[in-house]
């Protein structure tokens, strides 16, 4: 029901933006970041595991498809599964030892991984194009339909978002979701009721990596040029900020967080030199006044408002 509504909103927005190239592209970017944030939210918000290297999986998705399509002239549709599998396999290999860590230590472990991947993107010149980036990534087309135009690509990206939302929603409200939330609260207690905590953590880590790789794939075929600068530590931090600002353990929080943090810099550019100061100030403000994130915060305000109105009616 919610999803049908969501799909309708996307289609209407797409139609309304017809020809408005700037906003179409902005909305497409929001979609890509929403994908990244919702995947990370499964790991952070639900299972309570911090990843400070998530941009690495974003980059793995982008570079895998980039390398395969540019160097080997593969069709993007053939490189898509490769990109997803590559990220999944690397997440499995990295996650197996690192997920034994928790809290700050897991943060440090994933941070290290993110930095290694960033160096790899920059220095493995033959494959990644090095610091100059990888040029000439083809755009997507399907059965002769050009998907690269603003509105079509917007639909492709948001279609992926919708599909991911649907999968996450099903996961969260199932046995798996309950187990993840249990791990978040206490691994020992989760283990005592029979949850294989190591396996569940690894599964959600791989899942979030695959979603990030999908976002990377979509990004690469949208801008048709990728460079290491996109997949830095700062990008990972921005993703964490999206999850936290939007609201942990909420699928819609990821959407809000990604939208907020993508639109904010666009609208702050009028402040020129003061942009970053105001940007930081707004983030601090949100966290001080809505510590549970935007989703919970807005819901709380709405409930308070409703309770108040009810109160005055009864008076």
């Amino acid at each position: 029901m919610v999803f049908t509504l969501f799909a309708a909103v996307i289609i209407c927005t797409g139609a309304a933006l017809e020809g408005d190239y700037y906003h179409e592209q902005l909305l497409t970017f929001i979609g890509i970041f929403t994908l990244l944030a919702v995947g990370l939210n499964m790991l952070m918000g639900y299972a309570g595991q911090i990843s400070l290297g998530h941009a690495a999986f974003y980059g793995i998705g982008a570079y895998t498809t980039g390398a395969l399509t540019v160097h080997l002239q593969w069709s993007p549709w053939a490189s898509l599964p490769c990109a997803l599998i590559m990220a999944g396999v690397i997440a499995y290999i990295v996650g197996k030892p690192t997920l034994k860590l928790s809290g700050y230590y897991l943060g440090m472990g994933t941070l290290g991984f993110g930095m290694i991947m960033h160096v790899l993107f920059r220095e493995w010149t033959t494959i990644t194009g090095g610091p100059n980036g990888l040029v000439g990534i083809p755009s997507l087309s399907l059965w002769g339909l050009d998907l690269s135009t603003g509105r079509n690509y917007l639909y492709v990206v948001w279609g992926c978002v919708l599909l991911t939302f649907f999968i996450c929603d099903r996961l969260v409200n199932s046995r798996v979701g309950r187990a993840l939330r249990a791990i978040h609260y206490s691994e020992q207690a989760a283990s005592a009721v029979g949850v294989d905590t190591a396996k569940a953590k690894l599964q959600v880590f791989v899942f979030s990596a695959v979603v990030a790789a999908l976002a990377g794939f979509l990004y690469a075929h949208m801008v048709m040029f990728i460079s290491p600068g996109t997949f830095t530590f700062l990008a990972s931090v921005k993703l964490v900020a999206m999850v936290v600002i939007g609201g942990m353990a909420s699928i819609w929080g990821a959407l809000l967080g990604a939208t907020f943090l993508t639109l904010l810099p666009e609208h702050l550019s009028v402040f020129a030199d003061y942009e970053m100061i105001i940007y930081g100030g707004i983030l601090m403000g949100v966290m001080i006044f809505l510590p549970q994130g935007l989703t919970r915060g807005v819901l709380d305000i709405y409930e308070k408002f409703r309770a108040k109105r009810k109160g005055t009616v009864e008076d």
């Binding site: 249990a182 609260y185 206490s186």
Partner: peptide, 24 residues
Amino acid sequence: MVPEGRLIFPPLSVLDNLKLGAYL
């Protein structure tokens, strides 16, 4: 086992806590 200090999952609903017991 019913662990010491109960170790229920406070943020989850009562029903979800019970369902977690049947995880396997």
